[in-house]
Design a protein around this nucleic acid. Sequence first.
DNA 1: TTTATATATACGGATATCCATATATTCGGA
DNA 2: TCCGAATATATGGATATCCGTATATATAAA
Lengths: 115, 115
Amino acid sequence: MKTLSHFFKALSDETRLRILHLLIQSGEICVCDLEAVLKLSQPKISRHLAYLRLSGLVSARKKGQWVYYRISPDLPESQNSFLIQIQSLSATDPVLKGDSAALRGVYCTDTCTTI
Amino acid sequence: MKTLSHFFKALSDETRLRILHLLIQSGEICVCDLEAVLKLSQPKISRHLAYLRLSGLVSARKKGQWVYYRISPDLPESQNSFLIQIQSLSATDPVLKGDSAALRGVYCTDTCTTI
DNA sequence: TTTATATATACGGATATCCATATATTCGGA
DNA sequence: TCCGAATATATGGATATCCGTATATATAAA
């Protein structure tokens, strides 16, 4: 039960929702790409990523000086089905829709994305 | 987007999750039955019901001295599909499972439930 | 009209959350 | 080895959240 309310607390912040939405959509993103897409300060993004990491929602992989984040592969099924639904929200939410578009832009023009 | 994070904030508290789970399951419950099932103080329950009411998640109907709460009938579809999933969580979560059982008990023995 | 029951809200304190700014840390390249 | 880029964390302040307790309100019953 604690786990469950903590899970929703992780979803209850706008920045974290936007991050999760991008991770669900793209599989794996590094911090600097999140920074470029979300247009938020680097410490703010890192702080929320740490929050998500500590809640077990995302996992990180270090490659050189970059750190790639993804939705945690061993998330319990119950939580996973909630996350999947977030994906469908981008159809109606303008901010999420904008993030999706910005992400495509980053993946076309940026230099920091090839693994 | 604010709406969405506020929605999850409403789900991020254990008491509110338990209340919502009962409302989803039973349609309509009055405060005193919630009190009997959850075994929590009346002001605590009322406070969280007020929170849910202000977030638009539940609506209230007054009948005599009782107030009956239900999931808001005009909840946006996106939020509704999230709520429905909460129902399925009672299969795995012991607290929610216990609440379901206690609710059945209340509906058999109590005096305050007939509308 | 007084009394009891159901429900809501006010108050004050403890704790959590969130942020901006500043500073560490780690790693690759010159 | 030194420098810059990518990322993480520390600090302190503002605000929100949550709770227990006390109190208010409304309705029913006596």
